[in-house]
Simulated scan of single mutants.
Amino acid sequence: MILLGTLVNAGAIILGALLGRMLKRIPESMRQTVMQGIALAVFILGIKMCLGSDNFLLVIISIVLGTVIGEWIGIEKGLNNLGHWLERKVGGSQGSIATGFITGTLVYCIGAMAVLGSLDSGLRNNHEVLFMKAMLDGFSAIIFASTLGIGVIFSAVPVFLYQGMIALLSTSIYSVVSETMLNAILVEVTAVGGLMIIAIGLNVLEIKQIRVANMMPALVIAAVGVPFIDWVSKLFS
């Protein structure tokens, strides 16, 4: 079953978020300190992801153009409206739902494990990488949900759609993009995602409120930018 790994991964996030929701009864002071610790860890994770870039100029251009597009579309506003709707359905605060959803989506979708694991599921029906990712995501979902709120549970939806799409299209992806090019794209997309994760850390620490969701188109620009730069370099070489 091609989607088995993706289903297990999404299920682990849902289960982890539900368990984390049960830990909401811990004292407020303790939860606040734990959340600050998580924010620092997320901040360092983002820095580590950024340092892997081979073309930081592309990262900067992607963030700038992606943010312009995101602000124009109003992604953050749309997610806030979604959070307001979810608030009426499941309870909780709109801010926590939006923050949990965005944080979970970025952390669980950005990175090599999500892409390579999905490709392995689709091409070889091997789900070991996604099973390992499911364990990591499930445990982190417990922590995120206990501090950021129930919004983390909804990140299972984009994880399922994102990884499932890659698994189903795995054969077509390799017919269009070589393994070397795919790895190069992953490096730059991960770096752009790292900057966005740093912004999430700043938001959680309440140092500066950044509209991270409006930066999300930068991921697409980075993915397209890598083969475009390669094509231009070959054209003028």
Rank of each mutant, 00 (worst) to 15 (best):
H127M: 08
K234P: 00
I61N: 02
C109P: 00
V159G: 01
A156F: 11
A12S: 11
G111M: 07
I60A: 11
E87V: 04
M113R: 04
A112V: 14
Q36Y: 15
V204G: 00
R211E: 10
M35I: 10
N81W: 15
I102G: 03
G52V: 15
I44A: 07
G225C: 08
F139Q: 01
G70V: 11
Y162I: 08
K234W: 10
E128Y: 15
T6L: 10
E179H: 10
R31L: 14
A222G: 01
L161M: 13
A191Y: 06
V90M: 11
I143N: 01
G164F: 08
R25W: 13
S237Q: 12
T33H: 12
I150D: 01
I38N: 03
I75C: 01
I97K: 00
I200M: 07
T180S: 14
V59E: 06
I26Q: 10
Y162V: 07
N55K: 10
S237K: 11
A98N: 08
V224C: 12
I73S: 00
L116C: 03
G122C: 07
Y162A: 05
A213D: 03
A199I: 03
L82C: 09
I73T: 04
V220E: 06
V107H: 01
G225D: 09
V42L: 14
Q32K: 15
A10C: 05
L136M: 13
L23Q: 02
G122T: 04
D230S: 11
K133D: 02
D137R: 02
G11Q: 10
S62H: 07
M35Q: 14
L40P: 00
N214I: 09
C50K: 05
L136V: 14
I200L: 13
I2A: 09
I221A: 05
K208V: 15
Q163K: 05
L168V: 13
G122K: 04
S62F: 14
A141N: 01
I150A: 05
G83M: 11
F101R: 00
L186I: 15
L116I: 15
Q94I: 12
A223V: 05
I13R: 01
G46K: 04
V187E: 09
S237N: 11
S96G: 07
A134V: 10
T33L: 14
M215R: 03
N55T: 12
M216D: 03
V192F: 08
E87G: 05
A10W: 06
S146Q: 07
P27N: 13
A191C: 09
R211N: 12
D120H: 15
G111D: 08
F131L: 13
M135Y: 14
T99E: 08
M132H: 09
G201H: 02
I110F: 05
G138W: 09
M1L: 10
F43S: 01
T67G: 06
L123E: 06
S62N: 08
H84K: 13
S155D: 08
A213S: 07
L195I: 11
M113C: 08
I153S: 00
N203D: 11
V187H: 04
S93Y: 15
M196D: 02
I14K: 03
K24D: 14
T33M: 14
G70K: 05
S172Y: 14
L168D: 05
